[in-house]
Design a protein around this nucleic acid. Structure first.
Length: 361
RNA sequence: CCGAGGGUGGCGGAGCGGUCAAUCGCAGCAGACUGUAAAUCUGCCGGGCUUGUCCCUACGGGGGUUCGAAUCCCUCUCCUCGGACCA
């Protein structure tokens, strides 16, 4: 694969890429790049964290990148997820891994690293300290959004450690590319900024798009908020069941959620149903057939997202037809996952246990 | 540890001795309107059922005063905010 082809794959993943030229340079030098994503295990896993995450990793592996997944159990603990119960957090972490396997992700090519192990490494905490010394409390608090908190929240002292830990993770994992969501950009930028002072290499950052909630964005949009704050405010949330399709939803649940989803006709901005096509369906299919009744125009084949968008904007495709077909495509994606949990007793038991956990956000 | 203010239904937030199952807003549910959703309007919205001027359980926990308490008193507990302590 040529450098250009690799770069193209990376660009497909990133909605925002910081340090593309650095990535390009390293590829040209023949360096084996390391990318990572970290996640806090808590609650249920939605399509973006499950399917999209798996597909993205596969894409990067294809580009010759070594991928590390950090299961941020300590971070979740610091952030009081699942009532601050580390056992439950770790159970949930194992469950997430099962979901990725169920998605067909070849976990052999991936390194799973638990934060609880990482923090045991010699020098980790000294590194956290060094990072903390290079920044200010104010700046750390400004990173609150990486843990789903607001700057105005009453943060615990444990949460103050969090951003410095996450920056330390980047350096400790030897990451060339921090490949996380747009909501994680503040730490990645911090890491880039302070890397030279620590005598370390700047990590590039490839931030992926955050899928918006299926629920209408009406009062979520506030004047004056910047674009990133808005995308975060609008994103799907595992604590709001109707805002996202989960990896283990039944077909009926999917149909119900999509049926209730916000979907203004002709409107291509902030339209979750279109987003699902763009970021999920077209991830798997290069061609999509929108099935519909003869009286509504009959079936129509669409060869790219851009084409779908155009057809929708012009009114060529009606919202309900789009929705009905989305249900079918999503069901097709999720069915193997359901099947995996039906077949695998151990995984199913884990899933059932995790589902009894009360989610604290 | 001291002082102050608080803990009310999924959330926010009224009520401050009876007329309170508890104003109101949000969320949720149902219906009307649209070949989806949203917006708008209507009803429901602690639980139960025989849907009623019905029963039960309720306003952080426990106890008390009172004919009667979410509302007053005591106590415990938790949260927020100040302050004290920091040999």
């Amino acid at each position: 694969m040529t450098t250009e082809e690799k770069i193209k794959l990376i660009q497909e993943v990133g909605e925002e890429i910081i340090g593309l030229s650095e990535i390009e340079e390293k590829i040209k030098q023949g360096k084996k790049l390391v990318a990572y994503d970290g996640f806090e295990p808590s609650g249920r896993i939605h399509v973006a964290q499950g399917f999209v995450r798996a597909m993205t990793i596969q894409k990067l592996i294809k580009a010759g990148i070594h991928f590390k997944v950090l299961i941020a159990d300590w971070h979740a603990y610091a952030n009081n997820k699942l009532g601050g119960d580390l056992k439950k957090i770790q159970q949930t972490g194992r469950y997430f891994i099962e979901v990725w396997k169920a998605c067909g992700l070849d976990t052999k090519g991936i390194e799973f690293i638990w934060a609880s192990d990482l923090v045991e490494k010699p020098g980790y905490w000294f590194s956290v300290l060094k990072i903390a010394k290079e920044t200010t409390l104010k700046r750390i608090i400004r990173c609150s959004q990486i843990m789903g908190r607001k700057e105005s929240d009453n943060l615990t002292a444990a949460q103050i450690f969090y951003p410095a830990m996450q920056a330390a993770d980047i350096f400790f994992l030897g990451v060339d590319i921090a490949q996380l969501g747009m909501d994680q950009r503040k730490v990645n930028m911090l890491a880039r900024q302070i890397a030279p002072a620590l005598g370390l290499e700047k990590p590039a950052a490839v931030h992926h798009h955050m899928l918006i909630s299926l629920k209408p964005p009406v009062d979520q949009l506030k004047e004056g908020e910047d674009k990133i704050e808005q995308t975060i405010a609008l994103k799907m949330s595992k604590s709001k069941p109707d805002s996202a399709v989960f990896m283990t939803d039944t077909r009926e649940e999917i149909a119900e959620k999509i049926g209730k989803a916000y979907c203004p006709p002709n409107e291509i901005e902030l339209n979750p149903v279109l987003e699902y096509f763009r970021y999920i369906v077209f991830l798997k299919h290069s061609q999509v057939v929108v099935h519909r009744e003869e009286k509504f125009g009959g079936n129509i084949t669409v060869n790219s997202y851009a084409e779908l968008e155009k057809l929708y904007q012009s009114g060529e495709i009606y919202p309900l037809d789009l929705k009905n077909n989305l249900v079918t495509y999503l069901d097709e994606i999720i069915e193997p996952v359901r099947e995996y949990f039906r077949q695998n007793d151990k995984a199913r038991k884990l899933k059932e246990e995790v589902e009894t956990f009360e989610i604290t956000r």
